[in-house]
Design a protein around this nucleic acid. Structure first.
Lengths: 190, 190
DNA sequence: TGTACATCAGTGAACGCGCGTTCACTGATGTAC
DNA sequence: TGTACATCAGTGAACGCGCGTTCACTGATGTAC
């Protein structure tokens, strides 16, 4: 059947959204094309009307996730401040909802193995460092090296955030997970 | 054919070693049982003489990796000190050799999805926190909360180490990867 | 010590399954006249 | 405005493939007598 162009565009968007959610929950290899299409309410056939291959979907879904989650960052920081954002990021809720969470935490290992995804992933990391550098309160920003120090601070914060949520998600003991989140919140607040 | 028991034990060890290397390089889902057996020089059939299932191998390989890499940590810290260990961990060499590197960086996302592996993974994280707590030089260790602070410092360091190597491995631009490593080294040295 | 048999780690064909992808076909919508 | 045809996003069966796992069989080593 033929459909109006708006409907086709809406379906394309829905595929990207479902893929973004499922990929973050189970990784690229853990989700099949058929499963993504089923989640959007279609059969697997028309997938290839929207994307050249599963690999192409991975790259496009990552770019889409990147722009959506960075817009979320900007909005939350503007409305509630960076401290509130760090509390949300380093929270039990974020740990328990990978499908709606940070793409770096969920997909770093997968992205390293999928050549097509490394471009969008790299762009996202650069954007995250820039955003954190601007949002974080300066601690050592006096003297000549202040800009470089601010950037190094942002990178350290990003690495700790990503590592903490990845570890908290993998450990079996929820108390240990919560301790990892709390210690990292405390460390970044100092 | 029947083989002497030492030979059987040696093959069991070789399977664990090859599995540990390949799983860290490509993740649990990215390596097949046949590929692991081929790497040990056997056909896939006798795999089930050694392990009940691929899942059982994942759990045993993780436990084996844990004891081997924590022994490495102890040896390097004893011989060269914790600063040298951090330099080795946060190095280009570690980023480029996932198969011989940290299991947390390589397998955190996979371990979170595989119930059988979460036990050994959790034990490894606990061991890593304890080791770092003992090895790291105290910065804020005066007063009543010194032990708690030392543990929080160790957790923050671990999260930053794991996150930094995971991000450096995934980004396309080697200069950015090196910058992430350098900023994290600098941040943990302060 | 020599022979007959049990053991069991190998081999490699085969299984059922789910995967990514292709393709002949369908039929409502858009376009030409 | 009405009719005939082109378009193209759907459907669902089918493909070739690699996966984890099973199994009948092999034959050197260990054990019993």
């Amino acid at each position: 059947m033929r459909y109006p162009p708006e409907e086709t565009a809406a379906k394309h968007r829905r595929i990207l959204e479902e893929a973004g959610r499922l990929f973050r929950e189970r990784g690229f290899a853990g989700v099949s094309v058929g499963e993504i299409m089923k989640a959007t309410g279609l059969t697997h056939g028309p997938f290839y009307n929207h994307f050249a291959s599963k690999e192409a979907l991975m790259a496009e879904a990552l770019a889409d996730l990147s722009s959506r989650t960075q817009a979320d960052f900007d909005r939350i920081v503007a409305e509630q401040g960076i401290a509130a954002y760090l509390d949300l990021y380093l929270s039990r809720r974020h740990v328990d909802s990978a499908g709606a969470g940070c793409l770096m935490t969920a997909l770093a290992a997968d992205a390293a193995k999928e050549p097509a995804t490394r471009g969008p992933f790299t762009a996202h990391v650069k954007g995250a460092i820039d955003r954190l550098m601007r949002a974080l309160p300066g601690k050592r920003r006096t003297g000549a090296g202040s800009q470089a120090d601010a950037r190094a601070d942002a990178i350290l914060a990003l690495a700790a955030m990503v590592g903490a949520v990845a570890l908290a998600r993998a450990v079996e003991d929820p108390a240990l997970g919560d301790e990892i989140l709390a210690a990292t919140r405390q460390g970044l607040a100092d």
